[in-house]
């Protein structure tokens, strides 16, 4: 079932800056759908239109069948939002922040209390529930944001750069929570990221977005396969030419021979590799070396845009840190 549908969704800022340029896509129930793109690609702008914070300049979008412009309030009730920035009130405690969110959704307070405790346990902040947020680290803040975004038991959760600025361990922890939500609660998750690895590990489907346009959309494995598949490199003992033997195997697309080493382009390398070994053995040759290389999203991106994806975008992390310094001083 389609839970999010966007058609020619467009946002133009100040009548000239096209931040999101006629994009169309659908998100299906229960999947993790990722928007992958570099800084400034239009990811946040897209999310903001879907969560009703921004009105599209053109096109339309619906969430669970509710139009994001005409039925904005219905949309707001069924979604959870974890924004790119930390939005919790620093002067309040973690518990007070969650309860505030609950009140904004009008959740009856007895239900809200139970749920707040449950969520604080889920994100492992229960021991810090009465501490003011200003004392929290980045990872704790992100987890609190996640808890706040879940208070209304949303059917769709929107995560904007959920691991931006976090260290590797905290990032892995956040990934675990996201997977848990999908598996345990069958929640649909729409997330954005500019980390290739994150998109690859977490997302069922990815849309690669650049300059406000969707360049490619599909399962991470499909996107990578579209490059022409995996590369299996095989070395055998002896000098006989076995190119034809390998070519006969199903899913093999291309074989190149260099001395006794063969570079084989295949689909589904991990399934084909054993078949190749078996075929070679049957001819009584011995495989001495074998390696399997999978194409990465980086190569997909390279192919789509003609430039390499700068993973772990430094300038964005820097901007993020500066924002926090500014916040620390601004008070």
């Amino acid at each position: 079932m389609k839970v999010i549908e966007a058609e020619n969704l467009t946002k133009i800022f100040n009548k000239s800056l096209i931040a999101v340029d006629h994009i169309s896509f659908s998100v299906y129930e229960g999947e993790i759908f990722g928007f992958l793109g570099p800084n400034g690609a239009g990811k946040t702008t897209t999310i903001n239109m879907l969560i009703t914070l921004l009105k599209p300049t053109e096109g339309r979008a619906s969430v669970l069948g509710f139009d994001v412009v005409k039925q904005a309030n219905e949309v707001r009730k069924v979604i959870g939002v974890v924004p790119q920035e930390f939005t919790a009130d620093e002067d309040l405690t973690a518990y007070e922040n969650i309860m505030l969110c609950a009140s904004l959704y009008g959740i009856p307070s007895n239900i809200a209390k139970d749920r707040a405790m449950e969520l604080l346990k889920l994100v492992e902040l229960i021991d810090f529930k009465d501490k003011r947020v200003e004392t929290f680290s980045g990872g704790m803040r992100r987890r609190l944001e996640l808890a706040c975004g879940l208070i209304n038991r949303p059917r769709i959760l929107f995560l904007d750069e959920p691991t931006l600025g976090l260290d590797v361990q905290t990032r892995a922890a956040i990934w675990d929570y996201i997977k848990l939500l999908k598996e345990e609660y069958n929640m649909t998750i729409f997330m954005t990221t500019h980390y290739l690895e994150e998109a690859d590990v977490l997302c069922d489907r990815i849309a690669i977005i650049d300059h406000g346009k969707i360049i490619k959309i599909g399962k991470p494995s499909q996107l990578k396969d579209s490059l022409g598949g995996d590369i299996i490199t095989i070395t055998i003992s002896g000098n006989e030419d076995i190119t034809d033997v390998i070519k006969e195997i199903k899913n093999v697309k291309e074989v190149r021979k260099e001395n006794s080493t063969y570079r084989v382009k295949v689909e589904n390398g991990e399934i084909v590799a054993p078949l190749i070994i078996e075929a070679i053995r049957k001819r009584n040759y011995i495989v001495t070396r074998l390696s399997l290389t999978k194409p990465t999203l980086n190569e997909v991106y390279l192919e789509c845009t003609g430039r390499a994806f700068r993973d772990g975008n430094d300038s964005e992390d820097f901007k993020f840190k500066r924002l926090h310094l500014w916040r620390a001083r601004g008070k």
């Binding site: 969560i51 939002v81 924004p83 920035e85 939005t87 969110c101 904004l104």
Partner: peptide, 13 residues
């Protein structure tokens, strides 16, 4: 500036 307002207006309040 701190995003709190955005959070609030993304709820149905």
């Amino acid at each position: 500036r701190l995003g709190f307002l955005d959070k609030v207006i993304s709820t149905p309040v």
